[in-house]
């Protein structure tokens, strides 16, 4: 890679200790986001998208979850590239909220119910920009304006429960953007919202991304959304990346059978549906744990004997990769 990416995750592996032993919901994820680029991370529920993003923020639930392998390389504003996996927590905290910010899946519960939204934004601003309380509150007000919340001056004094879901997600976006992060991780920011609000939020993120030149890792179920916002796409299945490519490549010439299945069950109206789950669930079968061979084999229409025994690796061409032994036949 000649220009080092803003974010470059390599072979990430995450494990959780649970009541019934250890699970590995992320098994060797490799993906990258360049500055100013939007990368969509898609895959069905439980494929490990949120776990990947939480690992990047260092926010895996402790002590159950931990990164057990791989690297998460991040290029700081200073130009220095650091591995977030090994970065000491106090150092990581300096990056959180200032250089890397995150918007969560659940707008209704992600804001603190006993603090006003203004306080919550100002808190972050004061910490990272080193300005006083008054100035931070003015910054909060400015940010609410930026995310198109009317009456920002009054609304910074409101509590989350006084706002609708869409408004709260705007507040979350304002909070995430308040310190001009270089990288924004948006974990299904619109899934919980209704359709019209969803479109507004998407447009908002796209506009801010353009204006501020952030890199965005955009997590979603919804392929319809992907076409609207993303430059590149990374598809996950059962904790692994199965395909990566530009939006055009993925939509026009998917190489992995899972990707084509996803696209096949994308009805023309799916673009306007908010419920991505439905689309994905129409692939017959469900995720199974596979010891050997290709994880997708139990559900793959093209599965052959070799898929169940052979070593299936991510064949890593630049900017276009696929984890399938028979992808050439898919194309045919």
């Amino acid at each position: 890679m000649d220009t080092p990416h803003l974010l470059s995750i390599k072979g990430l592996e995450v494990r959780f200790r649970t009541e019934d032993g250890e699970v590995t919901p992320v098994r060797g994820v490799t993906l990258s986001v360049a500055a100013g680029e939007t990368v969509a991370l898609v895959g069905e529920s439980g494929s490990g998208k949120s776990v990947t993003s939480l690992a990047t923020m260092g926010l895996l639930p402790r002590p159950a979850g931990r990164v057990s392998g791989g690297q998460i390389l991040f290029r700081r504003r200073s130009g220095e590239v650091t591995d977030l996996v090994t970065l000491p927590l106090p150092e990581l905290r300096k990056l959180r909220g200032s250089e890397i910010a995150m918007i969560f899946q659940e707008p209704m519960t992600s804001l603190n119910p006993v603090l006003t939204v203004g306080e919550q934004i100002a808190e972050s601003v004061r910490l990272h920009m080193g300005i006083g309380h008054g100035a931070a509150l003015r910054r909060a007000e400015e940010m609410l304006g930026l995310v198109e919340i009317p009456n920002a001056r009054d609304r910074i004094h409101e509590y989350p429960h006084q706002m609708s879901g869409g408004m709260r997600q705007r507040v979350m976006i304002a909070l995430a953007m308040s310190c001009n992060p270089a990288l924004l991780i948006a974990d299904e920011p619109t899934t919980a919202l209704d359709v019209t609000i969803q479109a507004q939020i998407l447009a908002l993120i796209a506009r801010l991304q353009r204006d501020l030149g952030m890199g965005v890792l955009f997590i979603t179920h919804n392929l319809g959304v992907v076409a609207e916002v993303a430059d590149r796409v990374t598809v996950m299945y059962a904790g692994q990346v199965v395909e990566t490519g530009s939006v055009k490549d993925i939509f026009q010439a998917p190489r992995h059978p899972y990707t084509s299945a996803l696209l096949n069950c994308l009805p023309a109206r799916a673009r306007h549906r908010e419920d991505g789950r439905r689309v994905v669930q129409s692939i017959p079968g469900s995720v199974e744990f596979v010891k050997e061979g290709c994880s997708f084999a139990p559900r793959c229409t093209l599965a052959a004997d070799i898929c169940r025994t052979g070593a299936v690796t991510l064949d890593d061409e630049t900017e276009r990769s696929v984890r399938c032994l028979r992808w050439r036949e898919v194309l045919a």
Partner: peptide
């Protein structure tokens, strides 16, 4: 401590 807003607070870089 396992609520979502606590995770948000951590994501802001707070101690």
């Amino acid at each position: 401590l396992s609520d979502d807003y606590v995770r948000t607070a951590r994501s802001k870089g707070l101690s």
